[in-house]
Write a protein that binds this DNA or RNA. Structure first.
Lengths: 118, 118
DNA sequence: CGGTTAATTAACGATGTGGTTCACAATAGC
DNA sequence: GCTATTGTGAACCACATCGTTAATTAACCG
């Protein structure tokens, strides 16, 4: 019961992380945050959207656990949280062997390697 | 011009891939496909949804380039395509060093390593 | 041929998304 | 204290999503 609740939390977290990353503006914000903390305004600046829209994006990132916010006076300083990114990467890494095999097979098909000497 | 169009295609592809992965049913389908080809019906079977709903999910995966479909008579056989997964993984791997550093810093904070002998 | 099976398409509804504008709260600074 | 700055919240719009059911297409099979 507790286990299944925990499982659900993990699944929903993954949902939220992938959904957060499915928007190019938010991916750009994450990239920006990788180089250091930024306020909501600074995150919004490079994008042709209103501050209110940017605020919503930040909230999506926050809900996904990708961003942590610290309020300093009237400035909201955002910091990138590494763990959900690591979790998402882990999830994809599950397929690594699979797509290595598949891509190797593809390459082998395109340019077959020389036969071993019999 | 051509370059920017190409860039847009890549960005939209990433959008589509992350969006496709943001749904737990679709992630489960992808996992299933990692163990071999499956028809739409077989992909639908484990999930408590109609075949029509599953068909839509498959279409989303297809649009993201994650799945390739081969029609054999009335059966639509789906195969996992590795490249978009590799692309998404690459995108996340950009942050790998970042979150390694951050997690190391966190761990160091929680349990400081012994001081070097002075 | 007729019936069954596999899958898509269409139409609908509830809900979510991404954007806007405007009003508001709270802090900073003169 | 007044004003400008920073950010959120609410209301709204157009559109996408995820599910349903019902109708339709296409292929297999007895």
């Amino acid at each position: 019961m507790i286990l299944s609740r925990t499982f659900n939390r993990v699944v929903e977290q993954l949902d939220a992380v992938f959904h957060a990353l499915s928007d190019p503006t938010r991916r750009a914000m994450v990239r920006t945050l990788a180089s250091g903390e930024q306020t909501v305004g600074e995150l919004a600046a490079p994008h042709p959207i209103s501050l209110a829209a940017a605020s919503k994006h930040v909230k999506v990132l926050e809900r996904a656990g990708l961003v942590h916010r610290t309020v300093h006076g009237r400035r909201h300083v955002c910091r990138l949280e590494p763990r959900p990114l690591a979790a998402a990467t882990d999830h994809l890494r599950f397929y690594e062997r699979f797509w290595n095999d598949r891509l190797d097979a593809l390459e082998a098909f395109v340019s077959p390697p020389p036969e071993e000497s019999p």
